[in-house]
Design a protein around this nucleic acid. Structure first.
Ligand SMILES: NC(=O)c1ccc[n+]([C@@H]2O[C@H](COP(=O)([O-])OP(=O)(O)OC[C@H]3O[C@@H](n4cnc5c(N)ncnc54)[C@H](O)[C@@H]3O)[C@@H](O)[C@H]2O)c1
Ligand SMILES: NC(=O)c1ccc[n+]([C@@H]2O[C@H](COP(=O)([O-])OP(=O)(O)OC[C@H]3O[C@@H](n4cnc5c(N)ncnc54)[C@H](O)[C@@H]3O)[C@@H](O)[C@H]2O)c1
Lengths: 221, 221
DNA sequence: ACGCGCTTGTGAACGCGCGCACAAAGTCAG
DNA sequence: CTGACTTTGTGCGCGCGTTCACAAGCGCGT
């Protein structure tokens, strides 16, 4: 409750800081919105969009209010407008460079995956330490040697690690050294990064173990 | 504070219900413990194990106390004992059957992945709707047609969906129909399941978008 | 035998996120 | 123009999870 709270009641309250939980759901909404847009839907209520996204409708409204989005009471949200707002917030307007390190079984699957290409995110470069692989064409890209890392990284690049766990920290350090500040790690290891680097991990072994736990629990109920 | 609280002060307080957040970290501890065991370490302090797992040490201790695990004050935890305790809690003692549906780019990578085999979890069956693939040998397993689903599912099986999004709900329904109550979904769709079915999802498109968001934020700081 | 130092286990405070429930605000029909 | 209906935006209480900080406990050296 500072001094000037009645001064600007009409200003869209774009939150300076968006809660992490909200950020994690925006892509979900975005996907649902694209589906709706493809079906020709113009307008959607929070109830319907929440249903399509698999979340609570109050949560959805609160999330959208965070980004200053204005729906229309009695009507709902404009699908196209919402798409562009969320896209802008996620930084998907300007295409984002993604660099993949480790072109093995998993790396090849990722390289050929078109799922994010449609949303402004696409893998731009493939790197591997194996010289036998250098020059190979995969999904329209040429595999380059890891030594060329500095040449493919641009400011704002996202790094993806799909190497064996034993090489992950080393690759991570190389990425950080090249200026990458956002890393997605598929290797089952704890990685150490400077505080200014964002690190996320995907570990399906962990996912399976969590499911195993619940399955185990059910069996002894 | 019920009546008999002083009666059994020595009973290991095995929690009847373990918090979800704790369950999600147990596999992390398990991995770190296996590494320690391989190095011949006998005993580990909460501080050291927390460091190796990338978590706070107080959190680690609270997590372990949940499963009634007893460390020794002044010494730490017995590595071997802790491994068997966590493994038992996660249900990894008795090998757990995993059924993979959708043998495409991603499915093949998963099929050949040995990362969970070492921890009591391994894929037992590969299923696909494409008849041209039926009978093919992948990673020592024969691809079977999706119609054979009921024959490969056993009570306690975990289902993994790696089909295109358009087929995911249909496959999901088939799995549920066959008695599967734990599903891991890689397709970018919201799946509807009965309340008694555990559903987890892995969506790297979402992971990338979250990273994109933070990268975007940094750029306009 | 006994105290010293190390480490566990946990009480308590805090902050975040969730979801209910409702008032405010807008639409649309007549 | 008015009133009824629809849907948003959010205040509020609650429960979960995280972390600090410390007392209790255990081993070891003397
Ligand atoms: N395959 C899967 O389904 C799967 C699933 C989950 C996690 N993972 C994890 O993903 C990672 C990759 O798995 P994979 O099956 O593709 O392994 P892989 O062995 O098939 O491929 C690893 C690739 O990394 C390259 N590499 C090794 N060291 C490197 C370095 N220092 N710099 C650059 N490249 C290097 C290798 O040349 C190889 O091409 C592993 O950590 C694995 O645990 C894989
Ligand atoms: N490839 C990746 O790196 C990647 C990454 C993230 C997510 N995904 C998701 O994982 C899923 C699979 O991706 P992919 O690249 O392996 O696709 P893909 O097209 O290569 O493989 C899909 C497989 O599913 C099979 N299939 C289709 N309908 C089926 C049905 N009804 N029953 C059983 N099998 C059926 C197809 O025959 C095919 O073999 C997709 O939903 C994709 O969005 C893929």
């Amino acid at each position: 409750m500072t001094t000037s709270e009645l001064a600007e009641p009409r200003t869209p309250r774009r939150r300076e800081v968006i809660p992490e939980a909200t950020v994690a759901r925006l892509p979900l909404y975005l996907r649902a919105l694209h589906t709706l847009a493809d079906e020709g839907t113009q307008t959607v209520s929070s109830e319907a969009l929440a249903e399509a996204s698999g979340v609570n409708s109050a949560k959805l409204r609160k999330d959208l209010s965070q980004l200053g989005s204005y729906g229309t009471r009695g009507v709902g949200y404009d699908v196209t407008h919402l798409i562009s707002q969320i896209s802008r917030e996620l930084g998907l307007s300007r295409r984002c460079s993604v660099v993949l390190v480790g072109v093995g079984n998993l790396g090849r699957a990722l390289a050929g995956y078109g799922g994010f290409a449609s949303r402004g995110l696409a893998i731009d470069a493939l790197l591997d330490a194996d010289r036998a692989m250098t020059g190979e064409q995969i999904a329209g890209m040429t595999v380059r040697h890891i030594d060329d890392l500095a040449q493919v990284v641009v400011p704002g690049s996202i790094g993806v690690i799909a190497t064996p766990a034993s090489a992950a920290q080393e690759v991570c350090d190389l990425l950080v050294g090249a200026g990458v500040t956002s890393i997605l790690n598929f290797a089952p290891t704890v990685l150490n990064v400077p505080a200014d680097v964002d690190l996320r991990k995907v570990d399906l072994s962990i996912e399976l173990q969590i499911l195993s736990f619940h399955e185990h629990r059910k069996s002894l109920a």
